[in-house]
Amino acid sequence: MKYLAFIYGAPDAGPQMDTPEMGVLMEAYRAVEKTFTESGAKLAGEALMPVETATSIRIRDGKTELMDGPFTETKEQLGGFYMFECETLDEAIALAKQIPTVEYGTIEVRPVMVFE
């Protein structure tokens, strides 16, 4: 099964830009990237630009509406994701637990829908 791991974190939680702690975090991400790639479970994984860069789009009555910002304004923001190929939820959780942001944010794991 494919699982998507959403990485959520509040911008003021955890290491901030240009601090030694951020260096440690980036190092942790590099290490986990290596683990994920070597295990063969990682199908994709990206970090996202901050929510200030987000544009939300919808079409209502044929009219395109653009909104500045994320779809929902919450304290914790989607900061990135991984897509894994795993046999079970337990395997996906075992991988998600290794994503460094898990220490101060939340990782949501969801199976990718399969259209049979």
Binding site: M1, Y3, C86, E87, T88, L89, D90, A92, P111
Partner: peptide
């Protein structure tokens, strides 16, 4: 079934 919770003895 949908999330793939396994039927295993850990």
């Amino acid at each position: 079934t949908k999330a793939g919770i396994p039927f295993v003895i850990p």
